[in-house]
Simulated assay, not measured.
Amino acid sequence: MNWLSLLIPVYNVEPYLAQCLESVMEQAGEGVQVIVLDDCSTDGSWALMQSLAARWPGRLQLMQHAKNGGLSAARNTMIDAADGEYLWFLDSDDKLLPGSIGALQRIVRAHAPDVVLCDFSVWRERPRLKHALRGERHRRSFEGPSGQLLRDPAQLLAGMLATGQLHAWSKISRRALWPGLRFPAGRYFEDLMTMPQLATRAASFYHCAEPWVAYRQRGDSILATMNETKARDQAGALLPLAACQPLPLLQDARVQFAWAHQCARGFIGAMRYAERLGRSAPRARVQALADALRADFERASPLLPARLARAYLRRGWLLRWMKLRRWLKWRPE
């Protein structure tokens, strides 16, 4: 059995794919399975995959969907095909930074955690000083202790939710955690829906406070191309976690605040889209969307809005308090 499976979904990423796979194959040694799945790309991605596979004979496992199913479906297919003890999802327009797989292997050999979290850097084609000043060279994916094995699932979940960095590619997990858990096909913000559930299954974790992934900033991201469907998925992204409510760790005060705060962030982001929509769409349509977003927020959050607002004030988070109040009261003109 391989100790690691790297799972790379591909859809119309021909300009970026070679950089991604080169960053993996330069450091993927024995015991590392690399699966690359084409989700019916309409550009030259599939042909490029075949060409790149010839550069590393027998080292890339190529797959192809018969019809386009989206990112979640692609990842789910690869989970079923993986045989590694650990799973690492990598988007095909991003890349692994040098030494990442070796650093992961040292942690796995020394501590064997259920989940390993890594940090990341934002990768821009034309980085500027302002980007460096924003801390884009090193973004944390976890708020809490680093460099040690921890066995507190509530701390894992609260630390993930606190940063809001819930992407799948910064969490390497045991394949044994995935039975019965899959990414939601046909939904947006699928990582927010899935990774918190994964955290509830982990008995131990390790956070490495080093960037292992270079995340490419693109102009056609989900947030840059919002619509009503995406707004609903954003506001209700943590509804699957609410369905896990009987779990004792979800009653932890750290988890409840971080969870409610992340729900508020998603709600506010979705409401900003509703406000933009209100400049061109009928008022009744925008009002219906705003009402639905508020309802999704309240169903997903473990704390009622008024209680979360009081928690913000106790922490001195006046700006957060003001934003939450504004968007809870917002109505289209």
Rank of each mutant, 00 (worst) to 15 (best):
G44P: 08
A28M: 11
F142W: 09
A110V: 10
H138S: 10
G99P: 12
L133D: 11
R126L: 04
E85K: 05
L117G: 15
L104V: 11
R126N: 09
L62W: 01
G135H: 08
D152F: 05
L62E: 01
R124T: 08
S121M: 14
L52A: 06
R139G: 03
H131N: 11
S146A: 15
L48Y: 02
G144D: 08
L71V: 14
K67A: 14
T42A: 13
H138N: 10
D80H: 13
A47K: 07
G70D: 10
P98Q: 06
D152M: 08
L161Q: 03
M160I: 09
A28D: 02
G84I: 09
G29D: 05
S72D: 07
D94W: 06
C118L: 15
I35G: 02
G102Y: 00
W88E: 03
A73K: 07
A162L: 03
G31N: 05
A47V: 12
C40G: 00
M78G: 05
V36M: 10
K130S: 10
W88N: 00
W46K: 01
S141N: 03
A110C: 11
I79Y: 13
V108M: 01
I35T: 03
D119Y: 08
R139A: 12
A110G: 12
G31D: 09
R151I: 07
Q50G: 07
R139S: 06
H131A: 01
D94I: 14
A28I: 12
D119Q: 11
R137M: 13
E30M: 09
S72K: 08
R124Q: 06
A154D: 10
H65K: 08
G144P: 03
R134G: 04
Y86C: 09
L157G: 05
L97V: 12
D94A: 08
A112Q: 05
V122K: 03
V32G: 02
R137F: 08
I107K: 02
P113W: 00
P98Y: 01
A162K: 01
L37W: 07
S45N: 07
H138Q: 15
W46S: 03
L157I: 10
I101R: 00
T42P: 04
R75H: 04
V115M: 13
A53L: 13
A132Q: 05
A66P: 00
I101Q: 00
A112D: 15
L62T: 05
V32T: 06
M63G: 05
D38W: 09
A28W: 01
Y86W: 14
S51N: 10
V108R: 00
Q155R: 13
A82V: 04
L60M: 07
A74R: 10
G99T: 06
R106G: 09
P113L: 06
S45F: 13
P98N: 05
R59M: 08
E143G: 10
D80R: 13
A66F: 07
V116T: 09
L129R: 13
G99K: 09
G58Q: 12
R59S: 08
W123G: 00
L90A: 01
T42I: 14
I35V: 11
W123Y: 05
Q64C: 06
L133A: 11
A112P: 00
S92V: 07
P127W: 03
E136Q: 07
W56Q: 08
